[in-house]
Simulated scan of single mutants.
Amino acid sequence: MTELFLSAFVTLFVVIDPPGCAPIYAGLTKGASPAQSRSMAIRACVIALAILLVFALFGQALLGALHIELDAFRIAGGIMLFVIALDMVFEKRTQRREDRAEKVMATPEIEDVSVFPMAMPMLAGPGAIASVMLLTSKAPGTEGALVVLAALLVVMALTLAALLAAGPLMRVFGSKVESVITRLLGVLLAALAAQYVIDGVRKAFGL
């Protein structure tokens, strides 16, 4: 179970990417008071967690209703995560997030960024949803699913901490350190994504 927890933690941490979200959140809430910034960070993490929990608990039932086999979802999810990993390595994902943040900041009437774009699609995006469904689907029984959910809770707690400390951290580390971390996480995610595809192909063809 320790191995499952570590695997789930690393996968979700890399996909949700708290170090990458923190500087963007700092930019989005630049004009907000500390209390407003704290409130939006908490709300964003709670909403994102709720979305991911729904897919973790009911994702398999949804696949069954759509007549999609789990192995097909593993392969598709692995390919999706691999694309995200490439974006992270070449910093395209960060650029898209920053472009989305700039659009939000350019619209004065949008003050609360907790739901959009923070909760979704930045935290609970397609990659995170696919990951949490894959992890719970291959977890052994109820105990395994609880271990995955515990890893999700820890990652979301770290994400909340990163968002709350976004401003001070950006002043200390700057954007270069964040860029290096994002690229390293991207390489790790690429390997995890390849493993998902390999597992899905093996089981689909009985290898």
Score class of each variant (00 low, 15 high):
Phe9Val: 00
Phe9Arg: 00
Phe9Gln: 04
Thr11Tyr: 06
Leu12Thr: 06
Phe13Lys: 07
Val14Pro: 00
Val14Leu: 15
Val15Gln: 03
Val15Asn: 02
Val15Gly: 00
Ile16Asn: 01
Ile16Asp: 00
Gly20Asp: 03
Cys21Glu: 13
Ala22Thr: 07
Ala22Arg: 03
Pro23Trp: 12
Pro23Arg: 06
Ile24Asp: 01
Tyr25Gln: 00
Tyr25Val: 13
Ala26Met: 09
Ala26Thr: 10
Gly27Met: 15
Gly27His: 07
Leu28Cys: 02
Leu28Asn: 01
Thr29Ile: 06
Thr29Tyr: 10
Lys30Leu: 15
Lys30His: 14
Ala32Ile: 08
Ser33Phe: 09
Ser33Cys: 08
Pro34Phe: 03
Pro34His: 08
Pro34Lys: 03
Ala35Met: 12
Gln36Val: 13
Gln36His: 11
Gln36Ser: 13
Ser37Thr: 15
Ser37Lys: 14
Ser37Gly: 13
Ser37Cys: 11
Ser37Asp: 10
Arg38Ser: 10
Arg38Leu: 08
Ser39Cys: 07
Ser39Val: 08
Ser39Ile: 01
Met40His: 11
Met40Lys: 06
Met40Ile: 06
Ala41Glu: 07
Ala41His: 08
Ile42Glu: 01
Arg43Ala: 13
Ala44Asp: 01
Cys45Tyr: 00
Cys45Ser: 08
Val46Gly: 01
Ile47Ala: 13
Ala48Met: 08
Ala48Tyr: 10
Ala48His: 10
Ala48Gln: 01
Leu49Val: 09
Ala50Trp: 08
Ala50Pro: 02
Ile51Lys: 06
Ile51Ser: 02
Ile51Phe: 11
Ile51Pro: 00
Leu52Phe: 03
Leu52Asn: 02
Leu52Thr: 07
Leu53Gly: 05
Leu53Met: 13
Leu53Ser: 06
Val54Pro: 03
Val54Phe: 15
Val54Ile: 14
Phe55Tyr: 13
